[in-house]
């Protein structure tokens, strides 16, 4: 399969089929808390997409060069410290600590950058930016990247390079944005409806989310069928593969 179709499949599956909110349930807190108005939901979605991309870049780099078993930088330091040792250094037990630190740092960085250069955007994001540190979407994407880089050597046949990690992160963020904006649109209309008193607030939001999740179930299996279609129609190889190394789907 060509590089382009692999990437397309990855994008569709992370944004729609395995949607962060409706399939993995991550990011439910902002999904319920901040989905009252469309503009706020859009701001939250955009902020999450932005931060998740930065965090994915940082966490991929750290995992690939430092944390993964036998990572180049760690191995170099290890050899320098104790030359005769043959064991592979493995820092992957530190990954949760490092990721949460990286996320907190990335959020701080993004906040300072936006406050300095885009004051109006900063005002629009408001309290959401610091809240993103504890957003499950970001940590989930970091963990998923770690899983595909390989916590155990040789466990992943085709480890993700930076390009795939970034595409996964951006599309996961966009999927979250899609979910929260759709939800906010529905909730704006819901203001006019007569909701039974006990279900007001989070209750009805969760019920609607359930129905939306049911709709998103319709995407299940789309990736397998698309992969089959791509393989049979034999897209012209080398459109994108000339510059990038061709990757092979498992």
């Amino acid at each position: 399969m060509s590089y382009l179709s692999t990437v397309l499949l990855l994008a569709i599956s992370s944004a729609l089929i395995n949607n962060m909110v409706f399939h993995f349930f991550v990011g439910c807190c902002p999904f319920i808390g901040v989905s009252r108005r469309v503009d706020m939901a859009f701001g939250m979605g955009a902020a999450v997409t932005f931060v998740v991309t930065v965090a994915a870049f940082l966490s991929w780099t750290i995992t690939w060069f430092v944390l993964a078993p036998g990572a180049p930088l760690t191995t170099a330091v290890w050899r320098w410290l104790r030359p005769p040792s043959s064991a592979t250094p493995d820092l992957s037990i530190l990954c949760y600590l490092v990721y949460i630190f990286v996320i907190a740092w990335a959020v701080q960085l993004v906040e300072m950058y936006i406050r300095k250069f885009f004051p109006s955007l900063y005002k629009a994001f408001g309290v959401f930016l610091p809240l993103i540190t504890t957003n499950c979407v970001i940590l989930f994407v970091c963990l998923e990247i770690m899983k595909h880089v390989g916590p155990i050597p040789g466990s992943v046949p085709d480890p993700w390079r930076l390009d795939k990690a970034l595409i996964y992160a951006v599309c996961a963020g966009l999927g979250f944005m899609l979910a929260i904006v759709v939800m906010a649109g529905l909730r704006e209309e819901l203001e006019l409806c007569d909701v039974p008193a006990p279900l007001k607030g989070p209750g009805i939001t969760l019920a609607i989310a359930g129905i939306l999740a049911l709709a998103f179930l319709g995407f299940t299996g789309m990736d397998a069928n698309l992969a089959k279609r791509f393989q049979s129609s034999a897209l012209p190889e080398g459109v994108a593969a000339s510059t990038n190394p061709p990757t092979h789907a498992p």
């Binding site: 349930f25 969760l206 359930g210 049911l214």
Partner: peptide, 9 residues
């Protein structure tokens, strides 16, 4: 997933 959302609601 849908069952989870609706049951919690």
């Amino acid at each position: 997933p849908p069952g989870a959302f609706i049951a919690l609601a």
